[in-house]
């Protein structure tokens, strides 16, 4: 059962994470810049892929924008893991662990902060995408965008946190970032499944993130339908359950 004081603790931890953003000048910039640059860059480079027969849309920005949105969310979640590793190195986590607050509450505070923070790069990428001609996804499509961004950031934050709790060092940062990047890009990121090649096609076929990319993409390249939405929700829920359990286990095993 969730108690009032648990909610207060979660809110307090989210509040603390907010400082990181508001009190460090330029802290939000890298998180916004990376997916935006990749979006514009890949658009300029691979834009003519839409001329291939079998490509599902003639607007490459519309096709690409889901990937950059997810990349922004993954990047933000990974940053949460890096910050946690720093907190472990500096002893801050001990303050939280020595308190009677339940471990899942501590983890939720951390992860929720990542989810909320991920709205910043997502909004920036969306605005830039519309600027270079991405289609309007509809209100339902937009809702899906923000919901998926929040949960993807949570998945990334849990994944990165479990690494942080295991390695207890910021030097695990590349593993956090590369892991999320691989998960998000080994999908139908750049082209539809039929046009992909070799082993990556096989990986994308079984990668649950492909379902998530497709769910976000539908609004931009066509219309939103429940059939295209629920597999993405299911995939995200499954991933969150797994990495959530992993990171909670990591939180409980810090005393080992």
């Amino acid at each position: 059962m969730v108690r009032r004081q648990d909610l207060a603790t979660i809110a307090a931890l989210v509040n603390r994470a907010k400082n990181e953003l508001l009190r460090v000048p330029g802290a939000a910039v890298p998180g916004v810049l990376a997916p935006t640059i990749f979006f514009l860059g890949l658009n300029g480079v691979f834009g003519s892929l839409t001329q291939l027969s079998g490509f599902t849309t003639d607007s490459y920005p519309s096709f690409l924008v889901p990937v950059s949105l997810l990349q922004g969310a993954g990047f933000t979640g990974a940053a949460t893991g890096v910050n946690l590793a720093r907190d472990i190195e500096q002893g801050w986590l001990d303050r939280l662990l020595a308190s009677p607050a339940p471990r899942w509450v501590l983890l939720t505070g951390l992860v929720l902060a990542a989810s909320l923070r991920a709205f910043i790069p997502a909004t920036a990428v969306l605005l830039v995408a519309f600027g270079v001609g991405a289609h309007w996804p509809g209100v339902d499509g937009l809702l899906i965008v923000y919901a998926v961004v929040a949960v993807t950031a949570a998945v990334a934050a849990c994944y990165a946190s479990s690494l942080a709790l295991h390695y207890k060092s910021q030097s695990a940062a590349p593993l956090m970032q590369a892991g999320m990047l691989a998960l998000i890009l080994a999908t139908t990121a750049y082209a539809p499944l039929e046009l992909m090649q070799g082993w990556l096609q096989d990986v994308a076929r079984v990668n649950p993130m492909t379902l998530v990319v497709d769910a976000v993409r539908q609004g931009f390249v066509g219309g939103v339908s429940w059939e295209e939405t629920w597999p993405g929700i299911l995939a995200l829920a499954g991933m969150l359950a797994i990495v959530g359990a992993l990171s909670l286990r990591g939180m409980r095993r810090t005393a080992l």
């Binding site: 691979f46 003519s48 892929l49 001329q51 291939l52 910021q170 030097s171 695990a172 940062a173 590349p174 593993l175 590369a178 990047l181 691989a182 890009l185 080994a186 139908t188 990121a189 750049y190 082209a191 046009l195 992909m196 090649q197 070799g198 082993w199 990556l200 096609q201 990986v203 994308a204």
Partner: peptide
């Protein structure tokens, strides 16, 4: 230092793999 070597080797390799498999059909473009 993994933080130093990763960007130099791991990320470009990862992107190479992804871009080759993902955008490989580009060679068919006129």
């Amino acid at each position: 230092r993994p933080q130093l070597i990763a960007p130099i080797v791991v990320f470009p390799t990862l992107l190479l793999a992804i871009q080759t498999g993902g955008a490989g059909a580009a060679v068919n473009l006129p």
